[in-house]
Design a protein around this nucleic acid. Sequence first.
DNA 1: ACGCTTACTGTAACCGCTTACATTGTACAA
DNA 2: TTGTACAATGTAAGCGGTTACAGTAAGCGT
Lengths: 344, 344
Amino acid sequence: MSVKRSPNQRVKINDVARQAGVSTATVSRVINGTGTVSENTAKKVNQAISSLKFVAHGSARGLAGSKTHTIGLVLPGLTTFFFTTLIQGINDCIYNRDYSLLMYSVNTPASMISGKPLPLGEHNTDGLIVFTDFLDDYSIQYMHDQDLPIVMLHSSPPVDLNIPKIMFENEEGACDIVNHLIKMGNKKIVYLRGPEGNEDSRQRELGYRRALTANNIEIDETLIGRGNFASGRAEDEIIDMLQRGIKFDAIFAGNDDAAAGVYRALRKQGFLIPEDIAVAGFDDDYMAQYISPALTTVKAPVQESGFEAARILLDLIDGKPTVNEVRLQTELVIRESTKRGNHV
Amino acid sequence: MSVKRSPNQRVKINDVARQAGVSTATVSRVINGTGTVSENTAKKVNQAISSLKFVAHGSARGLAGSKTHTIGLVLPGLTTFFFTTLIQGINDCIYNRDYSLLMYSVNTPASMISGKPLPLGEHNTDGLIVFTDFLDDYSIQYMHDQDLPIVMLHSSPPVDLNIPKIMFENEEGACDIVNHLIKMGNKKIVYLRGPEGNEDSRQRELGYRRALTANNIEIDETLIGRGNFASGRAEDEIIDMLQRGIKFDAIFAGNDDAAAGVYRALRKQGFLIPEDIAVAGFDDDYMAQYISPALTTVKAPVQESGFEAARILLDLIDGKPTVNEVRLQTELVIRESTKRGNHV
DNA sequence: ACGCTTACTGTAACCGCTTACATTGTACAA
DNA sequence: TTGTACAATGTAAGCGGTTACAGTAAGCGT
């Protein structure tokens, strides 16, 4: 079926051992830093390795050592800037620690209940970074039960599982930005939720509510809609709210992506930003500074969150103790889209 | 060093064989669709597999079968939307074909000459999609010499190597958009090149030159700058050109990212887009429709390019014949940023 | 009835490493 | 000097699959 590619001419650990005049065990020790090897021997081995351009065969390593030297990343099949930034962060962390990154992006809610096992798991990774609400609790529990180290990124593990999670300071950040909107004179402030069950969204909503309450503004549930953290959905939702005659003077869009949809909706309906309606986002997406008016938002440390997730996962894999939750600080970024609210 | 995770309680092919009452060879045949297996036996095996939730150990498969069922993606450590879209395309292709995606993003020009081998190669993948100018010809040649299947994405292989490449119709697209700029009354049109040696950029420049020549506009080399396909660099370059007193009435920014930088530069210097200076990009990046004025650009089929690259790579791995070059059609998208050029 | 082909299945060697265990050599205390 | 401890290295048994090869049974032409 597949072409056999001259498997015998590949440089293997035997060749290195012969060239260095030692046994394969010693070569292995040098490569992995395990056991004790004299300085002199190590030097000879390293010379042989680089002169032969030897690279250990990953599968053989994986089989023999029961470590794949690979971590998996499960993410939703979305296409925003968010993810490349995240991947960059993960890459920064693992590159010097002899780990590779295996990716799987889920397009539709996936579950192991349905039968088909996930393409990432104990069989091909040493641990997983899970960043998607598309994976149900059962699947996570199953992998956790197999002792597969897992770190959750921007989502929560099943409550009773001891799985570390990395989050942004969502509530604080949301509270800050809603406070800012209020300070600019806005009272009727819309909040657009993220996807069903999304943890970031839930926390941001808490911040939204807290800010309103702290400013003695009664919470109007009709002002809370769903934008799904996606521009298209957010656009539809705002148009719908406007057509239902709901009045508001500001919108906290949940994230920047949704804010972009809000921009489009407001323009279509002839509203000016920020003169008629102020708009705020969350994340400080790459485009936030380029859209016009430039978007007021909350800067979330995306790359850092990837780095932290990887760091904690590797600690978990190495059996080191880890913290159970990391909350990364956010920062309010005030731009044009909230310059002043003049409605009441 | 690392915790031993109960390796004996993992379900392995033996367990499946026993439960189904057959040999491991038969189970393997069922899984891989190799050899002949009676319908009845296959059914029993499949039942055993799903009832035990068996997943073959990737490393063992890799070692025994000399196929890793993994492809590698080498990309530059950039953070634009481009790459998630690409990954999505690759994922779409490989998901149902039993392949996984291993990622490596290069931050600085990498070469195997310098000694350190790449983290992706024959030892852990069945083939590579290379998308970066950060990898030099020597490294590519080396891997190619080892019979590792490679597909180049938006970059060219060393001339004498028989490596398929996927490109956009850059020249055509660039020619179209420059023609459009000319039609709108612009004569002095800037082109911002991408990074040194970038193939997309080179081809776009050809299109730029062709359009000018076809319209009897003399090519002014001082109007050609370098934007590196990056907003920051493009911003600096435009500001520099303006300060050097160079006059122009339109800018073809090379890609959308650079166009965003151009927007910033022009605003800082008090120019209106498109009234004073028209701006055009390339790619139809996600944000192109959101920035203001909405950016006229060339839509490049990014996701499709990822899909095609993966498809061709898998064909290569399977030893099937493949085409040597794919050029994906582009499409002019006219928006606000080129509405009319009124300068001369 | 007999040999031959074909369909199916089992046996066991092997893929290239890691590592438990054995072995050797050397320093040092008794 | 001899026993002990420990550092340095080698030997060889797996890790969990794949697949070449062998074996068995059934179908079929003569």
